[in-house]
Structure formats: C-alpha cells, structure tokens
C-alpha cells in the first residue's frame, strides 16, 4: 500500500505526470530494480556515487556489484542484503520511472527520502507494512481524523479496501482525492447496517468496469453485461464481508449486509455524508463511495 501512496506523492509533488506514472505502473511487473536504486534507498550510497559506478561500467566490462565493492562503497554482504529487497514495489516503480527517463536517480533519491520523512516511516516499514501504519497514513491522506462519528471505521474500511484491491484486482493503481463529485453514480451498491450504518458504492465507466471485473474474475470479459455487473457487485460484497470479519475480530462489532445490487444510475443526493475514495488504475478510474 505504501507503494501506491508513494505514487500519489510523486504526482502531488509534480515530480511525474499522471501519464508517466501510469506508464511506469504498467511496466512495473517487468521492471527489475537495479543495485544503484537499492543502495540509494537504503542510504548506503549517494546518487553521485551510483552515477559514477554507472559511468565506470560503461567503460569497464565488470558487474555493477563488483565495481561497488572495488570502489569501497559496499561490502559483498551489503549487496546480498540489498538484492533481497529487489521486489519492493516502491523501488520497482522508481526504477521504471528512471528507466523511462521520467526521473533521474537523484530526483528519485530525494523523493523517497522526503516521502519517508514526511510520513515518519522507516525502511523497515516498507518491507513489513503494518495495518496501523497504513491506517495512520490513510487517515492523514484523506484527512479522516475521527472527529465525525464513524470516521475511525472509514479509515479501517479504506485500508482494507486497498489491501483487497491489491489482492484481488492488482497493485497498478494510485489512490487519489476527489476534486469534483457527480451527483449520480453507476455501479454496484450495498448497504451496511446494524452495528454501523452506511451505503457503499463502486462507481466507474463501462470500460473500466469490464477490465476490473475481468481481473477480479480471472476471465477475459469484453462487455458490461449481467455477468460483468455480477463480478463488480461480488467484489463489493466480498470486501464488505471481509470488513465485517475484521470489525468483529478486532472490536467485537457485528454488522449486517444487505444483498448487493447493480444500478445503471444512482442518485447520490440525500444519501448523507459522502466520502469518495477515487482509485486511478492503469486501466481507468474507479470511485469507491461510502455514504454515512
């Protein structure tokens, strides 16, 4: 989840454009993080030192790790440790941006350092993301500080939502903040009642729904037909059900769900306080809406 928040950070700081970020997210699955980025992220080398090694490699036929050891920047043990973090999402994203020429190594180093500082997170947090940390960061990100009744549950809801998106749909997205809310939505809806009272909605355009449903169902769907709509509705039902389990286990709070349903058009006015969590996937934008 920190990777997705880091993606948003790069956007908000105008360090990358939305289209470059989408391109990098798309390529992330085939990107391999290079040792230089790993060393900078771990604070073991400066961007200048990494550039120097890259220059050296251009003229010498040697492996980059060997050159780093020869120059005395890293020990073989440090290299072995660094290579273990090669699959880390935020570094893969950074590497893809560097490979595409949309960021320099130094810009990436600055961005990741500032992101860690701003959010008070350590390197270890990136590799072992705790729920409390994600919830704290999301609370700050969406300015949900629990001042309105039920807001504390919203943070848990969104934190679990992002986990479920990564688990069941894909990690190639960045969370966003709403700029302008339409008064209508189109998509799946499910009401939560009993211990909590809320209406939950997934809203997106047709093409986005088809791709979302394809990924969730692991099938190649081509149109927004009844089956696609059932897949979207089932994702909402699955997520809300897992949220119910979490609430019950962690707080002993029991909620009930009403059957999920798909609407071509829903009127959002009069539903109470609307909280919108837009998610920009590489294939389109999905709004998750909670009315309380």
């Amino acid at each position: 989840m920190l990777t997705q928040l880091f993606g948003n950070y790069l956007l908000k700081q105008h360090l990358v454009s939305p289209s470059h970020l989408i391109e990098a997210l798309r390529e992330s699955s085939s990107t391999r993080v290079k040792l230089g980025v790993l060393a900078i992220d771990a604070g073991l080398m400066t961007p200048d030192q990494v550039d120097e090694i890259h220059e050296l490699q251009r003229i010498m036929d040697k492996r980059i790790g060997d050159l780093m050891v020869e120059k005395g920047y890293l020990s073989p043990e440090q290299i072995a440790t660094l290579l273990k973090s090669q699959k880390s999402g935020h570094l893969i994203l950074g590497q893809a941006l560097i490979d595409n020429g949309h960021m320099t190594t130094a810009q990436f180093a600055d961005a990741i350092r500032q992101f860690k500082l701003d959010n008070n997170i350590t390197d270890d947090d990136f590799y072992d993301v705790k729920d409390e940390l994600t919830e704290k960061m999301l609370g700050r990100f969406y300015k949900l500080n629990g001042s309105v009744a039920g807001e504390e549950h919203l943070v848990e809801y969104v934190s679990l939502l992002f986990k479920n998106l990564i688990r069941f749909v894909g990690d190639d997205f960045v969370p966003n903040k709403i700029e302008k809310l339409d008064t209508t939505a189109s998509g799946a809806k499910q009401r939560i009642r009993h211990g909590l009272s809320a209406i939950t909605i997934i809203d997106a355009d047709e093409n986005t729904m088809v791709e979302f449903a394809s990924r969730f169902s692991n099938e190649s769907l081509s149109m927004n037909d009844d089956y696609t709509k059932a897949c979207i509705s089932e994702f909402l039902n699955l997520h809300n059900g897992l949220f119910a389990v979490k609430l019950s286990n962690n707080e002993g709070l029991e909620i009930e769900l009403e059957p999920q349903k798909y609407y071509e058009q829903m009127d959002l006015s009069g539903l109470g306080n609307l909280y919108v969590f837009p998610v920009n996937f590489t294939f389109g934008n999905v709004n998750f809406i909670v009315a309380m």
Binding site: F168, N237, L238, H239, N240, G241, L242, A244, V245, S248, N249, E254, L257
Partner: peptide, 25 residues
C-alpha cells in the same frame, strides 16, 4: 458460504445445523 465469516455468524450457522462454513473466496 459467505465472505462474512465472523465467529458470531459461524456459531449461529452451526447452532442451526450447518455442517461447516466456507469463507469466500
């Protein structure tokens, strides 16, 4: 068969005679 496999729901299902509870997915 449910995504909402809370302990309360599992207990209730068992009390009503269900043989088991499958958590979705």
């Amino acid at each position: 068969l449910s995504s909402m496999g809370t302990i309360a729901k599992r207990d209730e299902a068992e009390r009503l005679g269900a043989r088991g509870f499958l958590q979705k997915p």
